[in-house]
Amino acid sequence: MNVLLTGAASGLGAALLRACIARGDSVCVIDIDARPPNLPDTVTWLQHDLSDTDPALWDRIADAIAQQDPFDLTVLCAGISATGPFETISAHAHQQVSRINLHAPMRLCLILQQRGALAQGGRLVFVASLSCFTGYPGAASYGASKDGLAAFARSLRRPMRRAGVAVQLLCPGPMDTPHATRYAPKGARADRRIAPQTVAQMVLDAPRARFVLVPGAGAKLAALLGRLAPAMMTRIMGRVLFAKLKDQPR
């Protein structure tokens, strides 16, 4: 299998990379970090800052992608957050969230489609968040970027299916990754978070026909409640999450 991953240096992306290497895939990675040592030759590592808007850099990435065989599985994992009361976060931080989480995956999709880099019968997975079901007060630009991605994925679903590509939307709840630890309120319990390896395996095993992927029973329940009573879930998120983030010194 030929796999494309963004953000594979840590968290879910790293777990996916390990799992793909273990099953003998050849993997192309796009990440801001440099290639880590000891990766097998089956891994191509493209170092690229996804928040960079320089067209020349993106052309380089597009050319590098075009040199690979078409991808059977693409998982766009790279993402950052910015937590706290919206108005206290710098405009630059909000912009970075938007560029890395929304602009960049959309631009990559454009490249993948225009360069014919998505294999027939393959899958294209966008990594959104459980916040698509609950709202995310305390991370307004992050929640926005993930909802934007969800709308994008929903829009592409039908046209891509016609081209033989299954589009999927992964909506994980809090994972036990450096990302979650960085952005969760102080004192949040790590043992309640789902392991990235578990989510990675779920992505690899997911049936093509399923569009929304929500890993774990707790997250599934939250997603269900969010579908049934979206306004109430946002209020609850405000009470339990935003209230904590607001009061904590940053």
Partner: peptide, 22 residues
């Protein structure tokens, strides 16, 4: 119109969070 939809989806998520924060 996938790009337009994405931009409006993002605006919706933004307003959803901001309404609660503010």
């Amino acid at each position: 119109m996938p790009v337009y939809a994405a931009s409006k989806g993002a605006l919706d998520g933004f307003g959803r969070a901001l309404a609660e924060e503010w």
